[in-house]
Amino acid sequence: PESADLRALARHLYESYLKYFPLTKAKARAILSGKTSDSAPFVIHDMKSLLEGEQMINSRQMPAQELRRAEMSVMHEVELRFFHSCQSRSAEAVSEVTEFAKSIPGFVSLDLNDQVTLLKYGVIEVLIIMIAPLMNKDGTLISYGQIFMTREFLKSLRKPFCEMMEPKFEFSVRFNALELDDSDMALFLAVIILSGDRPGLLNVKPIEDLQETVLHALELQLKTSHPDSLQLFAKVLQKMTDLRQLVTDHVQLIQLLKETEVDWCLHPLLQEIMRDLY
């Protein structure tokens, strides 16, 4: 009976994962390997293709007049504009992760301040995990899979923009080697969110209890669906240590951008998350 409960929990989290996250690993891998009936993604590999692709990135919010201005503006602003649209997407993704968190059984019964703390500290880790399936060693899908941006192009941007994604690529290549599927990912994301050691938590016990249950479900699922992958559960959990370092470095880079880029403004939701984070 206990393992039936754990399976039910795994199924529930997988369903809310599918409900709240627009681009699954299965879909992303199909796009990346060309095994989809949809058209191939538009490739951004230089400034010219970035300018062309910007229309697609911003198609949902950028009016024609803005677009003309964008086309006329100097290259120097291209990075800023691109990272501005990255921020909008990130803010949107934060709200998707929030909805996913709320769907974890017991989460909304936690102290509201603790819910905020769990999201504040967990959400960038979750986003880094979620971008991994969109990446391969040569680049990453963006804009819901409509665009493929090459790793070389991201590396060619001016400092410090060029330093933002490279550590995520390195992590992703290692993480993708574990070959988790979407249902494994759903459980792992819940484990990350339910971390009882985040600074400033008021009531740790109920969070640890929830995490314990999800950990059991993850362990059971990995054993069942990847029987030949030795120590997979331990290897997945080890990735949580790498994530903390990645987030610390990311927040430092954002801090640097704030100091060096006069035109830089951080999305208010991302500001809330990053302020006094580490």
Partner: peptide, 20 residues
């Protein structure tokens, strides 16, 4: 609470889209 206004709103609003 003031420091995390939007996060609070996201957590408390169910289904209604929050103006991000």
């Amino acid at each position: 609470k003031e420091k995390h206004k939007i996060l609070h709103r996201l957590l408390q609003n169910s289904s209604s889209p929050v103006d991000l």
